[in-house]
Measured scan of single mutants.
Amino acid sequence: CHSECLGNCSQPDDPTKCVACRNFYLDGRCVETCPPPYYHFQDWRCVNFSFCQDLHHKCKNSRRQGCHQYVIHNNKCIPECPSGYTMNSSNLLCTPCLGPCPKVCHLLEGEKTIDSVTSAQELRGCTVINGSLIINIRGGNNLAAELEANLGLIEEISGYLKIRRSYALVSLSFFRKLRLIRGETLEIGNYSFYALDNQNLRQLWDWSKHNLTITQGKLFFHYNPKLCLSEIHKMEEVSGTKGRQERNDIALKTNGDQASCENELLKFSYIRTSFDKILLRWEPYWPPDFRDLLGFMLFYKEAPYQNVTEFDGQDACGSNSWTVVDIDPPLRSNDPKSQNHPGWLMRGLKPWTQYAIFVKTLVTFSDERRTYGAKSDIIYVQTDATNPSVPLDPISVSNSSSQIILKWKPPSDPNGNITHYLVFWERQAEDSELFELDYCLKGLKLPSRTWSPPFESEDSQKHNQSEYEDSAGECCSCPKTDSQILKELEESSFRKTFEDYLHNVVFVPRKT
């Protein structure tokens, strides 16, 4: 048989008469490798580009789960590009990614509803959504962080984005990388972005840091009482949809009607710091009717980097990364020049730590249904340095008659930039024990000054392991946590139920 035959053949030295091919099969003959313009397919066939392209389009058009959109890589027609490569849609070739590779997620039936953290986790790592997304989240724990972890990498949506009755959302900033909504599939009414009845939605994105392009379709905003109209108009300008909307697409009466839409800028007039305090004062603000001013709200939190936005980490279910302080308005003076500047002394802060701070007014709604208010920009203030805590785990070892090696770990709280350490030492008198000992005694162990690591005695271990207080009263049991108490109650309830079950099964009433 021919060298490319495997198993047997019907005619000697003829690659077209093989029972099976050793390498690849091409047009009725066995070959060692697939010549151009053919590609290896499933490690035994040679196919042309049209064959591989037909497989790709067949799966793409069917949208069946589990099928493969075949691509070409290293002269092979394979189910998908290997790690580190992405497909070129024009020629199906796998090309190296520039940075992290995109991950295209194809949605069944063309859309997916995100109504819980669990459903959001199914899209973790996706960068391109081939379909439409509907966000409908009523509640949950730590929602802002969970949504950002699972949806934060999405850069492109081919269909539309719909935010509907998501009472738990305060902001859409968890879509931190969303840059493009194509609108290839539109919501009824030709809408590519749809926001309806979101009672706590206050911000779409921080438009000073976020760009969003909507290729096709219109915007729809109705019944978002805490979303200011200025935020919607800003989205029109940034996304390129200005002029597409009709009169009733953006409701003037049901958007922002319960919001404090600040239209003035508060400026800080005085800032002073110490290692654990920050004193702030800002310019006074009074609405047209000074009785509408209820006070100020001061927001602050630790910020290692200057990239904080107002609604980071917030949701309507209680999660809030900001510390909020309510401040009463100052006494009002008739003389504008003698107006008191409101302020606040922030206490209990960490030394040498940068804080993000902003302040906003708290006002009631005027009778004319106009909203007044003022808010400052987010500023960054760093507390002063102070003395560091003591170095940890000092170790001293003498390696000769004239040297001592000293080692330690950095302090747990540096409280500033540590530039150097101060080492103090003092000579001590020799131990009298060394002169009084009889060095001729056998088995004498000389006193040693070398360091030995501390260890816990058996008594201390027994005390720590004991669940009861000892007789001397030195140790006591740790208080039980809520989960331990709940577990004990469940076990007790189970024992009672099981005992009742045994009584009912074992003891049967005697027939009379």
Rank of each mutant, 00 (worst) to 15 (best):
S171K: 08
G295I: 03
P284Q: 14
E155K: 07
T118F: 12
N224S: 02
I214G: 01
K234N: 12
L294Q: 04
E302F: 03
S338T: 12
L107K: 03
T361Y: 10
F193N: 01
E237S: 05
E262A: 05
R179T: 12
F311G: 07
W322Y: 11
P330N: 09
N224M: 07
Y194W: 12
P391V: 06
S321V: 09
S119Y: 09
W352P: 00
I188G: 10
L133W: 00
F221I: 15
F268A: 01
D393V: 10
P391I: 04
L143N: 08
E264S: 12
A385F: 05
P225E: 04
I395P: 01
F365V: 13
K407M: 14
N248M: 12
E310W: 06
I232M: 08
S132G: 09
N307C: 01
T353Y: 10
L161S: 00
F311N: 14
R202K: 13
N263I: 07
I137K: 05
R247I: 11
E231F: 14
S333H: 06
G189F: 11
K337R: 06
S173W: 07
M297T: 02
P329T: 11
M297I: 07
T254Y: 10
D315P: 06
L172H: 00
S400N: 11
W286M: 06
K177A: 06
I154K: 00
Y191I: 14
Y380F: 12
T113R: 03
Q382V: 08
T118P: 12
K218A: 12
G189V: 14
K103S: 11
M346H: 01
H210W: 08
Y194F: 12
S321K: 15
K301Y: 03
D249S: 04
N263T: 08
F358T: 04
Y300E: 00
N130Y: 03
E283W: 03
R138N: 15
S239Q: 05
L229Q: 13
I395L: 11
F296P: 02
E264G: 06
L362T: 05
S260Y: 02
L186D: 11
T241G: 15
G217V: 00
R176Y: 09
S333K: 12
T361I: 05
R179Y: 11
T113I: 06
H106C: 04
F296Y: 13
C228N: 03
S171E: 10
T361R: 04
L133N: 00
L108K: 09
L345T: 09
N141Q: 08
S132D: 05
D249V: 12
E236M: 06
N248Y: 11
F193G: 00
K301H: 08
I163T: 03
P351N: 03
L201Y: 00
T241P: 08
T353F: 04
V381R: 14
I404C: 03
G256E: 13
Y355L: 01
S398K: 01
H233K: 04
A149N: 14
P329L: 05
K162S: 13
N307S: 10
R370P: 11
R281M: 09
E302V: 04
G373K: 03
N248W: 12
Q314F: 10
R369E: 08
C261P: 04
L362M: 10
N307W: 09
G243W: 03
G110S: 12
L227I: 12
L151K: 00
T213Q: 12
A385H: 10
N150S: 11
Q121L: 12
V324G: 04
L266V: 03
F193V: 12
W207D: 06
L362R: 06
C261M: 01
A195H: 03
Y305W: 12
L186V: 05
G189I: 01
V324K: 01
H233S: 12
G139V: 15
N320K: 04
K409R: 12
G348Y: 02
F358I: 08
E237R: 07
N200T: 02
C261A: 09
G348K: 01
M346Q: 07
L362I: 11
E236I: 03
K253L: 11
I327R: 02
S400G: 08
K301R: 12
V397L: 06
Y160F: 11
V128M: 08
Q121G: 02
H222L: 14
K162F: 15
F311M: 07
A316E: 15
D289A: 04
K103T: 05
F290I: 00
D393H: 07
F296K: 00
I271Q: 14
R347H: 07
N136H: 10
W207P: 03
E310T: 06
E368P: 02
D197M: 06
V325K: 09
